[in-house]
Design a protein around this nucleic acid. Structure first.
Lengths: 326, 326
DNA sequence: ATTACTTAGGTAATCGTTTACCTTTATCAT
DNA sequence: ATGATAAAGGTAAACGATTACCTAAGTAAT
């Protein structure tokens, strides 16, 4: 069922049908309009967006590349993105990069072939500018900032301040031996969080002890292993974690070791993913406005697409949410 | 940069370039092939999949409609789907229905306009056949079975047996007073799980007591509330939960009430979502092969698309995984 | 009566591929 | 020398919309 067939049934030209369907009907009589619309309805006509896209050079589709939707942080990001996109008339193609530059590059290629109007990229750990051959594709970098040339937007939080606040909070709560468990990946945010931790210690005249730092990746297992390793040689009374998954792993290990939280050791996370309020004890953490970050990314991307803005950097605020783990 | 421009540079026709790019080059000399390929590479030509789709009537894109990616069950499903799709050369458009028939219908319309090759639908709670106007679109129903006419595939598990096994296990572990907390939604699987619970009781000559059943929805809060409500009037020593989220909420409530798990009350879940192994105590549950269900859905859908099979129903097996909550 | 504008709609090129069908030249068996 | 076949590549229609530009009739002002 095409526009041409509808046109024949209504005894008008396909141009007329197209105009009516797109609301460009100021020079179409109401009678004709009604007649066409009725036929469209009766025949269950569904317009062919592919043909439309070919002509108009716009697909109303966005590509989103994240490491892994199964990770609660990214699934919330994805949800924020999809909701905002849907609200603005866009669909989203979902891509999981598994933090692999190779998959990321492949997806960028595919998304360009599919003529998405723009791409939201949560960069993989090793991605560098030159691996991203983009042909002037509107793009916003979300959560993870990387070096990249050209007109790209950025939505980030102040990771250093967040980690600083977390550690400072632990100090205020009376901790004297604070460990840090996080990821050793090379994305900027990871480094910033480590810096924030160190700065908080230094400012309070505590020494930075590399033996109290365990870096691996952003997973529950890292938190679990980190606690086991760190407590072999140290007496910690506070642990600042690079993200909530790590904190959850840390809590699990501490629970198993019958170490009381928060009485003996206080634990603080980063992100405030959905599940964090449900662990035992509920996790005190540095909240990122994850869902909103997704929304903001879409808004910025669409404004770049529609040429209303040039890529800028938007820094969203983190907040400390107090629960029972401290 | 189009195929025509490449053709001009190489002094061949666009047909030749197209043939080379699509591997239909049995009658193209190696010299020409190389020359064209080099130009394609040098100019960074990216093919226009939209134009291709218009001609070939296939987009290599699948639509997936799930209630909510932020729900761990569905995010794992989504991941399985995306991985399998990517492996078979397809992209996926992600849609969150929030269990609303209205959103679901809207997405189905959009997906058809975008000419996806097929749709994987995890149906919303109220969706019924006639609300789904589809124009002969290949489709597979995933996880939730609904009545629908036409040629659709189905990937499900035996929910009744799963819930039966769970409850039976509790009985074997010595429980005499087993409650059931689940969702009251109208999808078939919810009813099946309730039936499985009841059947296990009946078979063991235990009476089904409606006061020990709390039905609301598949959320952590339901588990939490359910325990509070059920323990007001009952002395339970076992709780069979409609899914893991509910079980996690139940465990949280029990922990707060200082009731020992599994000594005083045993808890069993359903699904085996990722997080379940990390709660305290780790959750014993009926494992659904979630990721594989996503994969299987893609395989079945693509085989329907390629006309290699007609819609059939595939029932995957659940297994009981023992952890410390029982 | 002429000009100008508005209303209502039609014509046909165009977007970038794919592909059925055609042409030309070379090779080869008879 | 002839016909058949293979090799190499070209021509142009088609996919289904959109849209710049055109036409024609009616109306209104001068």
């Amino acid at each position: 069922m095409t526009i041409k067939e509808i046109a024949e049934m209504a005894n008008v030209s396909s141009a007329t049908v197209s105009k009516i369907l797109n609301g460009k009907d100021q020079y179409i009589s109401e009678a004709t309009r009604q007649r066409v619309l009725e036929i469209v309805e009766r025949e269950g006509y569904i317009s062919n967006a592919i043909a439309k896209s070919l002509k108009t050079k716009s697909t109303s589709t966005l590509g989103i590349i994240i490491p892994d939707v199964m990770n609660l942080f990214f699934s919330e990001l994805a949800r924020g993105i999809e909701d905002a996109a849907e609200g603005m008339g866009y669909s989203v193609i979902l891509c999981n990069s598994d933090n692999k530059t190779s998959k990321e590059e492949k997806y960028i290629q595919v998304l360009q072939e599919k003529m998405v109007d723009g791409i939201i990229l949560t960069a993989s750990e090793q991605s560098v500018s030159n691996s991203l051959k983009r042909r002037n594709m509107p793009m916003v970098l979300l959560d993870r900032d990387i070096l990249i040339e050209g007109n790209v937007g950025r939505i980030v939080v102040d990771n250093k301040k967040g980690a600083y606040d977390a550690t400072k909070y632990l100090i205020e709560k009376g901790c004297n031996n604070i460990g840090f468990i996080s990821s050793d990946n090379v994305v900027k945010s990871s480094g910033e969080r480590l810096k924030g931790y160190k700065q908080a210690l230094t400012e309070s005249n505590m020494e930075v002890d590399e033996n109290k730092i365990y870096l691996h990746n952003y997973s529950i297992d890292t938190g679990y292993e980190g606690v086991k390793k760190l407590l072999e040689n140290n007496k910690l009374d506070g642990i600042s974690c690079g993200n909530d998954l790590i904190a959850i792993g840390a809590i699990k290990a501490l629970n198993e070791m019958k170490i009381k939280i928060p009485e003996e050791v206080k634990v603080i996370g980063f992100d405030d993913i959905q599940i964090s309020q449900y662990v035992e004890p509920p996790l005190t953490t540095i909240k990122q406005p994850i869902y909103e970050m997704g929304e903001e990314a879409v808004k910025m991307l669409i404004s770049i697409i529609e040429n209303k803005s040039v890529g800028e950097t938007k820094v969203l605020k983190t907040t400390l949410v107090e629960r029972r783990s401290c």
